[in-house]
Write a protein that binds this DNA or RNA. Structure first.
Lengths: 277, 277
DNA sequence: TCAAAAGTGTTATCCCTACACCCATGC
DNA sequence: GCATGGGTGTAGGGATAACACTTTTGA
């Protein structure tokens, strides 16, 4: 299991020991949610942002750096899914959260303490369901990214701190238009977690088109405008109303409820139609 | 590293020992290719089949059962990709083969010898490039499967032996139309390898639509008819000629070469157009 | 001559984009 | 009244499916 280091000396003492011949596994989880920026104008909708949960590390290596929630596999008792769920329950107090395995990273120098292979997960949640239950060393960061040629620049901020990193996108094989990502610049985020974040975002963008995973990030009742904003935040582009409504028409059911008070025509509230198909 | 058992006693002696507290990792690789069934009719094209390479195990557990090529990770020196490539080179003598990570399986009882987490890979190859180099305990099996409701029945055959298994497809979450697969019946294939095979087939079906991976299974020069057959074998359905030609038009380049001798109009030979885009 | 596959053109249909337009509300 | 988002209809264009048709070969 994970060893806790409180000082650098303690950490360096183990650094050259035989620990490095053993294999450990961890899971790292990118939990995504959508946050709502308040607006001054009483008419306008709050601007939505994609956000990810980070934890401030309290031991070496990467002490005092932000990282994704993650932890070591209990070899005797857990599957990787069990492990990811347990970590999420510890960090967020939330059960029954949607998780999905992303990719298994196995760089030799990933963790200086020992040989670690890490399976990454993506988790989705409606942030409003758990906001005040977070531990004090955890914080939601809004995610913004821009792509120029093959360089993707990320800016993460929680209002007080800013985290930046750059990722390069490369064609992996001549015969695939899937990409491989490598970290170009990263001073603020522990381990290879920038890669986990971009894998999660790519998966999310992909799956929102052909599955219903987006409803894991929505409250029970929502307006179509709110749902459209979430799509727009994830896809990083604007959608036209009529097109959007056609696409999601058979995924939602209109309810009797309406949402008023917005300085405009009240919106009908919808529910996810999980009987569908 | 992997321990070789030549008798069951030897194997059972270790079974209850402390080995089970340690963690090992393996990779398992589903190598797919397309085989060509000969036809009696001189005019007809050979019928194409999807095929997968299996190895006959020579030690416990699962002694004398067929399994996918796979092996233990060298913890000190290898990434998972390195490991998969090394295993493939050992088993097939082929370098520069296309590989792609699929999914990491971590069931607690996957391997009775010890706690094993296994990352599965898919590999693609043009079988004609390596046919006579195979080791004697390796054999290509044609893959046929039929789906009734949520049960998928597989029949694998290499001409002499037949391997069958059944897999059940279940909706994993209400909010995803991705599936989870569980093994219902499996007497002939080692470990959880049926799951690796179906994951690979699903990935292949998906990616053939939006990437160029199929060309990893083609020779340098091919006719559009042959290419279409490969598509049809992988997608498990027939395609209409004009539609197919439109889809792949900008992925291939016509060459001066033609293929004659088929009892019909000669076919132009095409090349993969890897300059594209 | 004929069966089989190679290869091309054409039409009808569907789906999506883009735009236009009206509705209802709170200040 | 008016800005704002809610909500709907429709014309045009592009892609696709389905079909018809011609070409070329080996036996």
């Amino acid at each position: 299991m994970e060893k806790i280091y409180n000082s650098e000396e303690e950490f360096l003492k183990d650094y050259d020991s035989n620990m490095f011949e053993k294999l450990s596994m961890t899971t790292d989880i990118a939990i995504f949610s959508v946050s709502n920026k308040e607006q001054n104008n009483y008419r306008k909708l709050g601007e939505k942002k994609l956000s990810v949960l980070l934890i401030k590390r309290d031991n070496y290596p990467f002490k005092d750096k932000w990282c994704l929630p993650g932890g070591f596999l209990d070899v005797k008792n857990e599957t990787l899914d069990d492990n990811a769920k347990r970590i999420l329950e510890n960090e967020t107090n939330i059960h029954n959260i949607y998780i999905e395995q992303l990719y298994t990273f196995s760089d030799l120098n990933r963790d200086p303490r020992m040989r670690v292979v890490s399976t990454s997960y993506m988790a989705l949640i409606d942030k409003n369901r758990l906001n005040d239950k977070l531990k004090e060393n955890a914080s939601w960061f809004d995610v913004k990214y821009t792509k120029k040629n093959n360089i993707i620049e990320f800016v993460l901020t929680n209002g007080k701190e800013i985290i930046t990193f750059k990722i390069k996108q490369i064609l992996k094989e001549l015969t695939t238009d899937r990409y491989k990502y490598t970290i170009m610049e990263n001073n603020d985020l522990a381990f290879d977690h920038p890669l986990v974040i971009i894998s999660g975002i790519e998966r999310l963008k992909n799956k929102i088109e052909y599955t219903d995973i987006v409803f894991n990030m929505m409250p029970e009742y929502f307006t179509l405008g709110e749902l459209q904003q979430v799509y727009e935040v994830i896809l990083n582009k604007e959608l036209l109303d009529p097109a959007f409504r056609r696409i999601i028409a058979d995924k939602v059911t209109k309810t009797d409820k309406v949402k008023t008070g917005g300085g405009h025509r009240p919106s009908a509230l919808f529910k996810y139609n999980d009987k569908g198909e």
